[in-house]
Design a protein around this nucleic acid. Structure first.
Lengths: 194, 194
DNA sequence: AATTAAGTTCAATTTTTCTTGAACAAAACG
DNA sequence: CGTTTTGTTCAAGAAAAATTGAACTTAATT
């Protein structure tokens, strides 16, 4: 029964390679980023939190990496840098960058200023309410609004229909329009309630 | 910016092959299903309606074929059979069968009895309200409910946390639980309103 | 009871979406 | 300035999801 994705997205957990820095040739290198940048592995609690957001995010049709990143941020008292995220999650810089940008655009992650630090630090917006608002504005509303144009186009097409089919379609479109406008009016309420 | 699927799902419209029945060897075959079962092509209006539902359905993370099928049914005054759907939509019997079963499970399509007919006939539930209810029951609620277990598991994990991190996590989880219960209470309202 | 019609199932394939990684741009550093 | 650090972009590869089609089940028909 492949039609419906039936829940469950176990956080992949496939970490076979331990990625021990490309090949530290120059031994006398500054000890700068030692002890090794191999950040601690995710704790069970972190994994559980991340997993929760991964599955939430998947249910919304967003990529897993977005859930992982948000989850890690949500589970962290301190703001994190991109590299930190890359290392702890074992995802690529590319994914992290895109994911952060997306989360930022929803207002789910924010850059916070850290004095005397060059890198960007991110922290999760923990007011879930705001998160929902961002999702509605960024994802839901645009979809619903494109429906408006569609309905307009449909009206035109129906003009050209002849005989009883015109009547039939007119009824159908009216139902659609009714529902559509109700849905649009719902959004602001949703934002306030959740 | 590949993170978000930015709307628009033009109904594929790729119909290069005209599928002229495999190879009618036995000429004297009963003329039974002639004029050819090559059902009329989709009208512009039908295409527009189908397209509307395809994009709606995609926004909900369901497969395109489900939208196509529902769209065709919604645009049809008469109930349709599986073969009819297969032929007009140029999708496989397999897809049609699965799609119909799914739509049926949501209450979005219903079998209607047609006297003296062997085949199953389907028609669209045109009360969008009911459709929403089906979606909530079949897709939304299960997801939210699985969240309950997750939160329980999280609580346990947090017991084992030590020091200030325990406090931190406790706060986070409380936020989650608050939001989660609000969302759950919202569902019945949604069903009634939409 | 044999034949055919209707519908289902599921492994294989196709299509779509996500992730990676290496090349690039921007900006701080010395 | 040239170098290094930080972050972005995007084509290519990997992974996930949807679709197909052929084998199969069920049930109606002759």
């Amino acid at each position: 029964m492949p039609v419906v994705k039936a829940g469950e997205h176990p956080h992949s957990q496939s970490a076979p390679s331990s990625r021990p820095r490309p090949a530290p040739f120059s031994l006398p290198a500054q000890v700068k980023d030692f002890p090794p940048a191999s950040v601690p592995a995710l704790s069970t609690t972190e994994i559980e939190i991340i997993d929760l957001f991964v599955s939430a995010v998947r249910a919304l049709g967003l990529p897993k990496s977005v859930g992982e990143i948000y989850g890690l941020l949500f589970a962290s008292p301190q703001p994190l840098t991109l590299d930190h995220i890359v290392e702890r999650l074992h995802i690529s810089k590319g994914s992290a960058s895109q994911g952060l940008r997306f989360l930022n655009s929803l207002g789910a992650a924010r850059k916070v200023y850290v004095a005397g630090e060059r890198r960007d630090f991110f922290q999760a917006e923990d007011q879930l309410k705001r998160l929902v608002a961002g999702f509605i504005r960024g994802e839901l509303r645009p979809h619903l609004e494109s429906g408006q144009e569609r309905l307009g186009r449909l009206d035109l097409l129906i003009q050209n229909e002849t005989g009883p089919s015109q009547e039939f379609y007119a009824g159908r479109v009216e139902r659609l329009r009714n529902w559509h406008s109700k849905a649009l009016r719902l959004l602001p309420l949703l934002e306030r309630f959740l």
